[in-house]
Design a protein around this nucleic acid. Sequence first.
DNA 1: ATACGCTCCGTACCATACTACAGAGTCAAG
DNA 2: CTTGACTCTGTAGTATGGTACGGAGCGTAT
Lengths: 136, 136
Amino acid sequence: MKLMTIGHLARRAEVGIETVRFYERQGLLELPARKDSGYRQYDESVVARLRFIKRAKELGFSLKEIKELLALRVDPSTTCAEVRSRAKAKIADVEEKIQALQRIKNALVQLTAVCRGRGPTSECPILDALDQESEP
Amino acid sequence: MKLMTIGHLARRAEVGIETVRFYERQGLLELPARKDSGYRQYDESVVARLRFIKRAKELGFSLKEIKELLALRVDPSTTCAEVRSRAKAKIADVEEKIQALQRIKNALVQLTAVCRGRGPTSECPILDALDQESEP
DNA sequence: ATACGCTCCGTACCATACTACAGAGTCAAG
DNA sequence: CTTGACTCTGTAGTATGGTACGGAGCGTAT
C-alpha cells in the first residue's frame, strides 16, 4: 500500500493543504498515520473521500451533513436498521434536491425557447417559467 | 394590486426581515416602493422571488449565481442571443448537479440494500457504493 | 553538508451569508 | 390618544468554511 504526503493528497484531490488539515480538525477525515517525523501519511482512499466532500459541498450539503453521509455505517454503536432509516431520510432529501433542480432546469430550457429576440422580456423570466412549471 | 409590509413578506416567504433587507442591499431584490413614512411596500411577486432564492441557496448556488439566474432577461443592454447562451451554460451546470445527486442517491439506495445486519460494514460504505457506480 | 522544498502546529485573518441590536419614527386597535 | 407592535437606518456581531502566516523541523538531490 503506497502512502502519500499531505501535499500529494491535496494536489490529487484538488483542494488546498490547509483545507485537508481543516477537514481533519472538523472530523471529516480520520486521523492519518504519521511518520516518525510527524508527517501525515495518506492512502489512496482519502483522495476519493476528499473528492466526495468537494462535490457534496457544491451540491449544497454542509460539512455537518457530509459528515453524516460519510458516517452511514454499521458499527458497535449503530444497528443496521438505524443506518437504513438514516439513509432513507437522506434519499428523500436528495430526491427533493433533484426535483428542485429539475424544475429550475425546465425553467431555463423554457427561457431559451421563449426568447426570440423580439425586444425586452418580462421583469424576471425565470420566475415566470417556474410559475408555469407548477401550474401547467 | 395589494401591497404588503416587509414583515408580511418575510413571513410569507419564510425568511427573516433582516434577510429581506440584506438581499435588497446585495441587489437580489429590487428597491421596493415606499410609503410616505418610508415603509417598504412589496407586491405578491416578491414572495416567489424570495422563495426561489431560498431554494436555490439550498441547492448550492451562491447569492452571486442566484443573482445571475434572476437577471437572465433581454433588456436594452442584453441581446436575446446573449441570454440564450448564458441560459445554456446554466443548464449544463444544473444538469451536472442533477447527475452528481443522482449518483449519490444511487449510492444511498445501494447502501440500504447491502446493509443486512450481519455486523460491522466497511469504513465508509457510501464511498464504496459510489465506486461501484462509476465502474459497474 | 547544504540548500530548497515540504511539513509541522498554532493562531490569525478572510469572505459569505446572515442576525442582532440601538434609537427613532409609524400604525392601528381600543 | 395612548399603547404595543411594526418599521426605519446604520453598525456590529455570528457561523461556516476556509486561507494565510510564522517559526521550526524534515527530506533529498547535488
